[in-house]
Design a protein around this nucleic acid. Structure first.
Lengths: 206, 206
DNA sequence: CCTTTAAGTTAGCGTCTGCTATATTAGCGG
DNA sequence: CCGCTAATATAGCAGACGCTAACTTAAAGG
């Protein structure tokens, strides 16, 4: 009687990964409330109960994504950045940071959108991302600026404000790319980094 | 039998305005899909059919907000900006622009959130805002930069990229304020404008 | 005071949503 | 080849959703 399509039975871990991947795709384009569990299941190629075998609820599934991304630590570069600060090499410092940020947007703009959604929708784990990435980023930059000011190599500027200004210069390019998509950021990435860092370091005026 | 609370009967125009105001509040905090017509009606203090007397659908109501905001032309300042460009006064030019942007975020951060939502959710009228504000902004700045480069007063820099960098420096501060809300932007607005414009114009290095 | 108009309500339709109790079957260890 | 486990499907509940037909009543004009 049943003409069931004989779906391939994946081991739990693979199925879970497949669900997460499809979820990122959908949540990033429609937001948490814009995605139904039915649509998600269909996109994975299974039925709804399968989702609930791997995640307690729609919310838990969403939080699994956020946590996964928030915990992706960028701490490998921390030591390198500190070396640049100690060496007083602002050029290298800001170039690395800008490259990091733009790469993050380019590699998977879906996460940029998803995190933007989560921040707007006020999900708790969104704060986690802020603490573990944005705030830490500001910390790195302010420390670098303060260090350079002490050495007399940089003009005295409110450090947090200046850090945000740099973050804005870079992230805005990525944001426009992830949301409005005019032009291919990936291709021009290197030029963007070069121009923005140059602008930030030396100023636009002759 | 009926214990109806004898609601005040507003003239259509006032009721319509009240609905729009409550709608901005709700849509900006929960997004289009996060707001139900029931919740909106309750927030206005009426019942659902009243909403449908003023707007054909939930979508039409939302688009009325977007159109209202997109059409709010900033063209009053256009002539002033052009004068600054002609006079070669970059200081005044960028100060006015930065003030404009930050004021926009401060006056009503709800719209910043609402427009962010609409961009993510891909509403058609979101493009209208991009065209009528973001793209026009880029146009002003690129023209100013090109003009200054021709006069030899500014370093040769990819104009659109430089325009976006400036937009990012300023808007990022507003965005952080509208979304994560750490600190009071309104109070420090003037210092932010001063610092950012100074940074952009003269560069951070001594 | 009576008529007319429109601002407002009640009640509920059809559909979709998150989620689940229950049944079924693929595939591995023995 | 069997039996067990875990991966999957069917069917559907209870509530929420966008929206509407039909009724009620406040209030302005003659």
């Amino acid at each position: 009687m049943s003409a069931t399509a004989a779906r391939p039975r994946l081991p739990a871990s693979k199925r879970r990964a497949a669900i997460l991947d499809a979820a990122v795709e959908l949540f990033s384009s429609k937001g948490f409330r814009g995605v139904t569990t039915r649509a998600l299941a269909a996109s994975v190629g299974v039925t709804e109960p399968v989702l609930y075998q791997h995640f307690a609820s729609k919310h838990a599934l969403y939080e699994a994504i956020l946590e996964m991304k928030a915990m992706e630590a960028p701490f490998e570069v921390e030591r390198e950045l500190e070396r640049f600060t100690e060496a007083g090499d602002s050029q290298a410092f800001f170039t690395l940071l800008a490259t990091l940020i733009l790469n993050w947007y380019c590699e998977d703009p879906r996460y940029a959108r998803l995190l933007m959604y989560s921040a707007l929708e006020g999900h708790e784990l969104s704060d986690l991302f802020y603490e573990r990435h944005v705030a830490i980023f500001y910390g790195w930059v302010t420390r670098h600026i303060e260090s350079q000011v002490r050495r007399g190599k940089m003009r005295r500027t409110p450090p947090l404000l200046a850090a945000r200004a740099f973050a804005g210069m870079v992230a805005h390019q990525g944001l426009i790319y992830a949301i409005y998509h005019p032009g291919d950021l990936a291709a021009s990435r290197k030029q963007v980094v070069k121009t923005v860092v140059d602008l930030y370091l030396q100023g636009i005026m002759k």
